[in-house]
Nucleic acid binder design. Structure first.
Lengths: 193, 193
DNA sequence: CGGGCCTTTGACTGGTTTCAACTTCTGTGG
DNA sequence: CCACAGAAGTTGAAACCAGTCAAAGGCCCG
């Protein structure tokens, strides 16, 4: 149930068996069906979720009702609305499951307590937050400096399996494009090769 | 010399005078003239800089030699290449001063040591990294879901003084636009009001 | 005062969006 | 098991908007 989570943890900060059991006591598991919400706009985000298996997305609804997908999280990634989680303010985002998913959940209170008790957990989430920051910075870089073709190719190398698991119109939303434009971008790429 | 840094620190995590002196012993000050580098591509980023006063930018050079500005840091913000700082690998970015600047510097070795010795410092940089992540996520949101006009207006509300301190073509680069397009965006906005 | 950089403006080009139609695929119910 | 409705993806044409190239004016700095 926690295989991937602790695999991830141990690759980042090695744990003894006892430490692992201790940390596990602060975690819970949650299974979500496709389309089920983990968080809805207006709610306070009270947890951080690690995706053991599945695909989650964080998005907001535009004024015109369109879904703007900000982040995908597949197996091995974390997802939360960090702003709402830290400040306790209502979230402006939705989080839901793109496919049936298994999550490892830690609540805010559990996380706060565990951070005080375990230097290794503290270190783990610090490094993971840093990694998440670096990823976003890379994404900004590609958005402001690459062509659509190159941005799509980069997405494929970073998340090779995403096109098989996520509908194309969601990838278009993630890239800030219309579905039609992404379809044409893909066509241009396949013709070139 | 460290006024703003510790003002910031105390607003995030309150310190006693003794704790402040202890932390101060790990910090150094650096003054940079406009156009001076803090980091050049190929170097390993060995420090995190806090901008006491001034404006810094992080950017990369595109294949065509164009500057792609990823991040600005004005008074009260941090700047570093977090990837290079964490992994010790050579940076693909440049950091330099947009105007004469005063920085509070902490090196990697000092930061690593201080994190072990001071839970409050650990907490401070964790919260600051989280904030930085949230900021980037907001920026991604606006890039994929807002019009150019709205993105520019948002930039003005988030950094009201930036247009007086940063040349317009750098703001265009930061937004991923040509200088000509930004000029026309500004014109459209002023006509509307 | 002069030179060079920055910003603005114009005309033109190229690429993205929009709208609409058509096809394919999927899941559902008869 | 087939029929059908709805969603998803593709394609085309027209409108729109950002990029490019070029030129002119303004401003800062030497």
């Amino acid at each position: 149930m926690f295989e991937r989570y602790f695999q991830h943890f141990n690759e980042t900060v090695p744990l003894t068996a006892a430490e692992q059991e201790f940390i596990k006591s602060y975690l819970t598991v949650k299974k979500l069906r496709k389309r089920q919400y983990l968080l809805q706009e207006g709610d306070v985000c009270n947890c951080v979720a690690f995706v053991e298996k599945g695909v989650m997305r964080l998005y907001r609804l535009g004024d015109d009702g369109a879904e703007n997908i900000i982040v995908f999280a597949t197996d091995g990634y974390f997802i939360t609305d960090l702003y709402s989680f830290i400040t306790n303010e209502p979230s402006g985002y939705h989080i839901d499951a793109v496919e049936d998913s298994e999550l490892v959940i830690i609540t805010r209170s559990a996380s706060d307590e565990l951070r005080k008790l375990s230097a290794k957990y503290q270190e783990f989430i610090f490094l993971k937050t840093s990694e998440a920051y670096i990823q976003l910075e890379r994404r900004i870089t590609s958005v402001i400096s690459l062509s659509l073709e190159d941005r799509y190719k980069e997405l494929l190398t970073n998340f090779p399996d995403i096109i098989h698991r996520v509908p194309q119109h969601m990838i278009a939303s993630y890239m800030g494009l219309t579905p039609e434009t992404l379809s044409r971008v893909r066509k241009r790429i396949t013709i070139q090769n």
